Simulated assay, not measured.
Amino acid sequence: MTRAAGRWSAARVLVAALWAGALWVLGYIAAPAVFGIVGGPLAGDIVGAFLRRLAWISIACAVLMLVLVRLSPDLERGRARYLNLLVLAMLACALVMSVGLQPAMAALREAAGPGGVRSSPVWTEFAVLHGVSQLFHLIEAVLAALLVVRAR
């Protein structure tokens, strides 16, 4: 591998690791810690703010990865296509969560009122949306692991 090819490879791995790390830390460390310490509606507000920032990180990393894959001279066509598909699948997960599920969940939390969503009639709908959101986060996190491994 030439020095230039090594730099392109390192840049792809760095972006993939940043994206994956953000997903893993928020989803499996920060969010559970916030709910364990703070609890209740405030924890939901804090994690919601984290998730909005994560959506922007995901969009930025996706755009950067797509550019890196497009410009990388060391990637053969099939491998570049595979990486592009991984990135687009991860971006799709992020967009479904940030544009679809999170706003719907926020509306349900607001509709629930000061007593919180758990004690309201919208709890079941909220719980279903939350479960679907967790599934999309898990899918994105698994795809991120593949991206980190395959990005070099």
Rank of each mutant, 00 (worst) to 15 (best):
L14M: 11
W56D: 07
L66H: 07
M65T: 04
A62T: 01
V67C: 15
G27E: 05
V34I: 15
W19C: 02
S9T: 15
L51G: 02
M65Y: 01
I57D: 07
C61D: 00
A31T: 10
V38W: 03
W8A: 07
A30P: 07
S9M: 14
L51D: 06
L26H: 13
A43P: 00
V34S: 03
R52S: 05
P32Y: 09
W8G: 08
A20C: 12
V15D: 00
R7M: 14
W8H: 14
A31P: 01
W19N: 01
R52C: 02
L14I: 04
I57M: 07
V67A: 15
V38M: 02
V69C: 13
V67L: 15
W24F: 15
A62S: 08
G21F: 06
A16E: 10
A43M: 06
G27Y: 06
A31Q: 04
A31V: 10
S9I: 07
I29N: 10
L54F: 08
C61I: 08
R12E: 09
D45H: 09
A30G: 14
L54Y: 09
V47M: 03
G36Q: 07
A22K: 01
A60M: 09
W56Q: 11
L14S: 11
L26D: 00
L64F: 03
G21P: 02
L68I: 04
L66W: 06
F35H: 14
A22T: 15
A22V: 11
L18E: 04
V15I: 14
G36R: 09
L68A: 13
L14A: 14
L64I: 11
A22F: 09
A22D: 14
A30R: 01
L23W: 00
A17S: 14
R53C: 12
V67E: 06
A22G: 07
G39T: 06
A16G: 09
L23H: 01
A30S: 15
L51K: 02
A49K: 06
V69T: 14
A55P: 00
V38T: 11
L54K: 01
G36E: 12
W24N: 09
A33V: 15
L18I: 15
G48C: 10
I29W: 12
W19S: 06
G48H: 02
V38C: 13
I46N: 02
A17M: 12
S58K: 02
V69A: 13
S9G: 10
R52G: 11
I46R: 03
V25H: 10
A62R: 03
V13Y: 05
A55K: 01
S9F: 06
G40P: 09
A11Q: 04
L64R: 03
G39K: 13
G48Y: 05
A31S: 10
